[in-house]
Computed example of a mutant assay.
Amino acid sequence: MLTPAYAAITLGSNSFNMLIARTKGSQPHIIAKYKRKVRLAEGIGEDGLLSQEVIQRGLDCLAMFAQMLAQHHIQPQHVAVIATATLRTVGNAEEFKQRALPLLGHPIDVISGMREAELIYQGMVATTCGQGRRLVIDIGGASTEFIIGDGHQVLFKTSLPMGSVTYNRQFFSSMPLQQLDFDDAKRQVLLTLAEHRKTLRDLGWHCVVGASGAVQSVVEVLMHRQLSETITLDVLMQLKAEILAQKDSSCAGVIGLCGERAPTFAAGVAILLALFELLGIEHLSLSGGALREGVLMMLAQRVHDQA
């Protein structure tokens, strides 16, 4: 029997994503993917409010998602809409939610950082081969989640306020970039990690898995250059040197970097570099999935229970 299609929508601080799937066997089978770089966190003003321009950018994306929901004949009860760091913190999140409701016909669930970490981990486990204790790092636009787990068991999780969009605004908005910009970013990562740094290192791990666009962008550069897709400190140091040689924010001289990822590339590399150095990471591999896949797994179970 054909199961109904369902849609997992995640509203991140950098990208909005939608996965549409049906269950085959006992696993979600993705039939369509939609994504747009909304860069919500870019629109946070000094008053802590989202600008109307960025709100409209987000609503335009949700209107497109709504068209796709109709096209795929998704029922409202088979949709989950999850929002993360930016809508957790801005003062006019309620305005955005109210204006989005008639577009999607479904309320937005703004989840806590801890719930986000849980869903990221479950999305990683469902999509990424590997055994033993794993450290999962998901660098988003405005927050970074750290999870240590073994199999399906989560041993540690936290969500911290650092991300590629917010760090880009704070440290990397003035070209050409300098070594001092990377130093300032590392200092901020150290302050933000604070007491969690010792806990993470004491728990330890067998391997490190990275999720999100920051990691994906580095892996895409390595793939374009036909190099190993494993991220190391040497790889990040080389990319930093290339970034420092760029004259403008397009980073056109970084071979293999997609233009869409260029605006937050320096900030993502800086956060990764700081984490490698502060946590003693040697190798990091790209996760097969994260938050959106975790939401999809949650939704698949809900649809199954409703059947």
Rank of each mutant, 00 (worst) to 15 (best):
V110F: 02
V110A: 08
I111Y: 03
I111F: 04
S112K: 00
R115D: 12
E116S: 03
E118F: 12
I120H: 09
Y121A: 00
Y121K: 04
Y121D: 02
Q122K: 08
G123S: 02
M124T: 15
V125A: 12
A126P: 00
C129D: 10
Q131G: 15
L135T: 02
L135K: 06
G141S: 11
A142G: 15
S143A: 04
F146Y: 14
I147F: 09
I147D: 13
I148D: 10
G149R: 06
G149A: 03
G151V: 13
V154P: 06
K157S: 09
K157R: 05
K157W: 03
S159Y: 08
P161C: 07
P161M: 01
P161F: 06
M162L: 13
M162P: 01
G163S: 04
G163Y: 02
V165A: 07
T166E: 06
N168K: 08
S173V: 01
S173L: 08
M175H: 07
Q178W: 07
D183H: 07
D184V: 06
K186W: 02
R187H: 02
L191W: 05
T192D: 11
T192M: 11
L193H: 05
L193Y: 04
A194M: 03
A194G: 14
E195A: 00
E195I: 03
R197M: 14
K198P: 05
T199D: 15
L200D: 09
H206F: 02
C207Q: 15
C207E: 15
A211Y: 10
S212V: 03
G213W: 11
G213H: 09
A214H: 07
Q216G: 13
Q216K: 12
S217H: 14
V218E: 08
V218Q: 03
V218H: 04
V219I: 08
E220P: 09
E220H: 13
